[in-house]
């Protein structure tokens, strides 16, 4: 449909596209979908058990965006709003979240599992298929750990944006991200041994 979209639509910012979608502009909505569908799908997939649920969440995300575009309030980040909608859609059918009743693992222990104190933590990224190994390690994490890495390290959301999507304080977000990265390193580490 590219030829139907004016240059103005393709160069518009997300917030502007959402505002235009709110007033019924289908082309603006289509551009928004095309711009973000792959990222929203990946984020949904990080939260759901299977591809079918992720696809369902993807569809419901953009339906909700179309219906509730008028409720978006700039200048909040359009991406964090989009990911928040996606999160709600994905978690509706996702597994129950991990209970946080257990004592959080001490940072020192996590660090040790992640390779602190070993001779060659650099070996984590050596060898072939780095992309595949990172993807596999990410897939082995708990959903909580995976989603914070997807939002911050893969999608590049700022700390403020990610904390707003996850409903966490900035300091809680930072701590979750740090622990998630250490668990990812531990997972890469175990694979090498």
């Amino acid at each position: 449909m590219d030829h139907l979209l004016g240059e103005a639509t393709r160069s518009a910012g997300d917030a502007e596209l959402i505002a235009r979608a709110a007033s019924g502009d289908r082309a603006a909505f289509t551009e928004l979908v095309e711009r973000h569908r792959a990222a929203v799908h990946r984020y949904a997939r990080s939260l759901t058990k299977n591809d079918a649920d992720a696809e369902d969440a993807l569809q419901r995300t953009f339906l909700a965006v179309w219906r509730s575009a008028a409720t978006f309030r700039g200048p909040a980040s359009a991406r964090s709003w989009l990911f928040t909608v996606a999160r709600n859609a994905a978690l509706r059918q996702a597994r129950p979240r991990r209970e946080d009743a257990t004592e959080p693992e001490a940072l020192a222990e996590l660090g040790a599992r992640a390779g602190w104190g070993t001779d060659s933590p650099h070996a984590l990224l050596e060898g072939a298929e780095v992309r595949a190994r990172l993807g596999a390690a990410l897939a082995r994490l708990d959903a909580d750990d995976r989603e914070v890495i997807v939002l911050r390290d893969l999608e590049g959301l700022s700390g403020d944006e990610a904390s707003s999507v996850l409903g966490l304080s900035l300091s809680a977000l930072k701590s979750r991200l740090h622990r998630a990265r250490l668990r990812l390193m531990a997972s890469l580490q175990e694979e090498i041994r």
């Binding site: 984590l124 990224l125 780095v130 890495i149």
Partner: peptide, 28 residues
């Protein structure tokens, strides 16, 4: 050593996985 490795893993996440796979034609 560990700090270098931590930074390298974070950079690799963005570099290797930063761009999501396009959707399959069916899903699209």
């Amino acid at each position: 050593r560990f700090g270098g490795s931590y930074g390298a893993v974070v950079a690799a996440l963005r570099r290797e996985l930063g761009t999501p796979e396009p959707l399959s034609r069916d899903v699209e």
